[in-house]
Nucleic acid binder design. Structure first.
Lengths: 124, 124
DNA sequence: ATTTTTCTACGATTATTTTCGTAGAAAAAT
DNA sequence: ATTTTTCTACGAAAATAATCGTAGAAAAAT
């Protein structure tokens, strides 16, 4: 089973998920827009992620192209699970209430959630 | 500003939140029910938490009594915020949808959420 | 009164994650 | 043709988190 990505690795995965296969240079540029980060740091992390199997890469060209090897949804689900356990003692409902209460959602977003809830009720 | 609790510290806080002011022994016993953990490890962690200001303690008796110095709600909100940023690129709605979709909620829980949503809609 | 248990203090070790620095090859620029 | 830039590889350091071990005082048990 693949290891969970660390925080720094997750940052990199976000870039790959949003932009598709990318070079280290590109990923580093994206990260650098948000915070200071050295090129070799990003490189090293991506190499480690490759060892772990979190990314795959194409080494045909000199500049290697990396691609996420795990799905965004599955990863979020996975991390969410342990987060709920650690922080909300396993109560997903508590988390949902917190998240909702603490966030000004647009009417459209609220409708989305209502739709999902009604779907769940029908499937009961 | 107080630092965020680490995972191990959070485990201890959960015990304190649920049981009120407690000795190291009691906390350690609670933790030990779920996993292997040495007494001095728990002690050391609680001492560090005291240094950080995450807990307060009463040292009148030989066995010191520790109490959470930060509120559960505020802490959950705080941690949830960075989690949403890290894992869901800041989209709380995405997180809510994931959490809901991935969890078989009881009709009662669904009603709770619906009530909250309707309240939010009225306050729009 | 002595032994055993329980407690704190705290340095040191281990594990994990992140960052940095250097070397050398390939490519690009002058 | 040389210099400069860009890339990988990779060891090593720094930062952070968690665990452990020992010493000594206080309390409890014998």
């Amino acid at each position: 089973m693949l290891p969970k990505p660390t925080d720094a690795e997750l940052e990199i995965l976000q870039v790959l998920w949003e932009n598709g296969p990318s070079s280290v240079r590109f990923v580093n540029d994206q990260l650098a827009e948000r915070r200071e980060v050295g090129y070799t740091t990003t490189l090293k992390l991506m190499q480690i992620m490759h060892e772990k199997g979190l990314v795959v890469r194409n080494t045909d060209a000199r500049s290697h192209i990396y691609e996420a090897a795990i799905e965004r949804d599955a990863t979020q689900r996975n991390l969410l699970g342990t987060f709920v356990d650690n922080v909300f003692s396993g109560s997903a409902i508590d988390l949902v209430m917190q998240a909702l209460g603490n966030h000004k959602a647009s009417p459209d977003e609220l409708n989305q959630i209502k739709a999902l809830i009604e779907k769940m009720e029908r499937e009961e």
